[in-house]
Each structure stands twice: as structure tokens, then as C-alpha cells.
Design a protein around this nucleic acid. Structure first.
Length: 271
DNA sequence: AAAAGCCCCTGGATGC
DNA sequence: TGCATCCAGGGGCTTT
């Protein structure tokens, strides 16, 4: 699913178009990961004032309150003046005078949650523990080094946990570690300062490049205009088990870490 | 506080 | 063709 670049590409593809829209009705499909936390009718007549992103959450600001949208593993958002009748996997429609915002999510790990404010108990539960935005000012290399010093877990797992840095999902974690030449199983606290600085740069580089490419890593990704990911950003290691490393031709290896697959090159990522 | 497992759910690919 | 198994981009919650 969607990692930070895909979520940001989604945001950019509809934020301007939905700004100023007034909610006319709400349609709910099957239950998502969490309940909406408000009566759907209570959203009617509210105006959308903007769309922000925090980690992998989209924050749809209303003149009063906000909707937190998460795409989970299989979610996508589309916004258009007119949409086809809702299908079996369309579980949330926000109908406005400017168009319909729809969450399509076959696996339903995604969610749409209403929060009165960011200080709201619901918003704090979902957003409160999130780490630094990797493409923002708060993601400082020396701070990153100091933070990783406190963590004994494997670096890949620390990246995925999202409490130090957000938005790095299963694909980009493997890709960034390859770029930095770090073995995914290495304990975070054992990484030297130069290696952490390299990882910091690799995370930024991988994410910003994917963002420029329009979130192209996911084969079935579409932005809110319904435009598909171009899948033009070639993965160095992700999904390439047994295939030759693009740098040294050694066979890429695949392991399991915390019930997720990890890919790395045993030569380029020695430790 | 941090780490490790457990789930939630559907569909596509693979193998017999 | 039919059926079983495995795997998938996440992450909050519970237990150690």
C-alpha cells in the first residue's frame, strides 16, 4: 500500500480541487478499521478548508473538526465531480458540491475517523506517537543518530515502527537500507554516526525520488485523479529475491522480520 | 520504555 | 477447472 510518497501524491492530486467544498451527504459502505466516531449526518453543511498529511494519514480539515483518512494496505482515494455508483469495495463517500471524495479499500485496513481537533483523544491516539516527517525540518541527522542509540531492535523494524520517523513503509525501508549499505537486521544502536547520516540521506533520497515520480513504486497505485502509478521507479532490492543485485550481481536475499518480508544484498549490505 | 506477536480483511498467484 | 496455501504496500493493541 501506500507509503508516504503515495499518500502525498494522493493529497496533491485533490487538495486544491476539494478546498472550499461543502458537504452534502455521506455514504458509508462496509465497516473499516475503526468507526467514523461521529454521526455521518453531522458532517453535512460543513466546509472543507484544506487537506494536510501527517505520516501516512490524510487530514481533511473541515471548518469545524477534521477527517483522518488512512489508506491501510489496499486503500486509494478518488475525488471527482461525478463518480460511478459505489462498488463493493467503496466504503466511504463524502459527497460535496464540488465532487465526491471516495475511499476504495478492498482489504478494509484503512479508516476514516472524525476528530473534533488534533488535541482530540481520537486524533492523539492515532497521531500522537508519530515521529519526524522525513522530508521536513524536524528530521535531523544528529537527532536521528542519538535516537537510534536508544534502540536495540533491528534497524528495519525501527524504521517501520514510525515513532522516530514516519512514512517509511515496507518497500522504502528495504530500499533506503540498500542505498545506505546497511544490513536490515543490524541493531539500530550499533550504527555509527556516519552510517546513520548515510541512512538519513538515503531515506530522504528514496522518498523524494518516489514522490517526484508520482508514487510509482506500487503497481496498482492510483492518485485521486484515478491516474495510475507509472511503476517506473525500479526497486533495487524489494521484491527481487534471487535476482542479481543491480550493483554487484549477487543474488538478492529475502528474510522475514516481524511478519513482513525484507530484501537485501548480502554483499552490498554486509552489516 | 521498548520489543515482539497478533490480528483485522480480500484477492491474486501458485501449486497440486 | 477446483481447491488449498501463501502472500501483499499498515499499524494499533496486548503481552512480555
Amino acid at each position: 500500500m501506500p507509503e508516504l510518497p503515495e499518500v502525498e501524491v494522493t493529497r496533491l492530486s485533490f487538495a486544491d480541487r476539494i478546498a472550499g467544498a461543502v458537504v452534502q451527504s455521506v455514504r458509508l459502505g462496509k465497516p473499516l478499521r475503526w468507526p467514523l466516531q461521529c454521526r455521518p449526518e453531522s458532517l453535512v453543511h460543513r466546509r472543507v478548508t484544506g487537506v494536510r498529511r501527517r505520516g501516512k494519514y490524510l487530514l481533511v480539515d473541515l471548518c469545524e473538526g477534521m477527517l483522518l483518512i488512512h489508506l491501510g494496505m489496499s486503500g486509494s482515494v478518488i475525488f471527482d465531480r461525478q463518480l460511478a455508483p459505489a462498488g463493493t469495495h467503496d466504503h466511504f463517500d463524502l459527497v460535496t458540491d464540488l465532487g465526491i471524495l471516495r475511499l476504495h479499500d478492498p482489504r478494509r485496513f484503512g479508516a476514516v475517523v472524525y476528530a473534533a481537533a488534533e488535541a482530540d483523544i481520537v486524533a492523539r491516539r492515532l497521531l500522537g506517537h508519530l515521529g519526524a516527517e522525513p522530508l521536513g525540518e524536524g528530521f535531523d541527522p544528529l537527532w536521528f543518530f542519538a535516537s537510534l542509540k536508544q534502540r536495540k531492535a533491528a534497524i528495519k523494524q525501527v524504521l517501520l515502527a514510525g515513532d522516530l520517523v514516519v512514512g517509511v513503509g515496507n518497500i522504502y525501508a528495504s530500499e533506503a537500507l540498500f542505498l545506505a549499505g546497511i544490513r536490515p537486521t543490524t541493531r539500530a544502536c550499533t550504527l555509527s554516526k556516519p552510517r546513520v547520516i548515510a541512512l538519513h540521506a538515503a531515506i530522504r533520497s528514496v522518498l523524494s525520488r518516489a514522490l517526484e515520480q508520482g508514487g510509482s513504486t506500487l503497481r496498482d497505485f492510483t492518485n485521486a485523479r484515478g491516474e495510475s502509478g507509472y511503476f517506473q521507479l525500479e526497486a533495487m532490492v524489494y521484491g527481487r529475491a534471487g535476482q542479481p543485485c543491480r550493483v554487484c550481481t549477487q543474488a538478492i536475499r529475502s528474510i522475514r522480520q516481524g511478519q513482513r518480508s525484507t530484501f537485501f544484498c548480502p554483499i552490498c549490505q554486509k552489516r
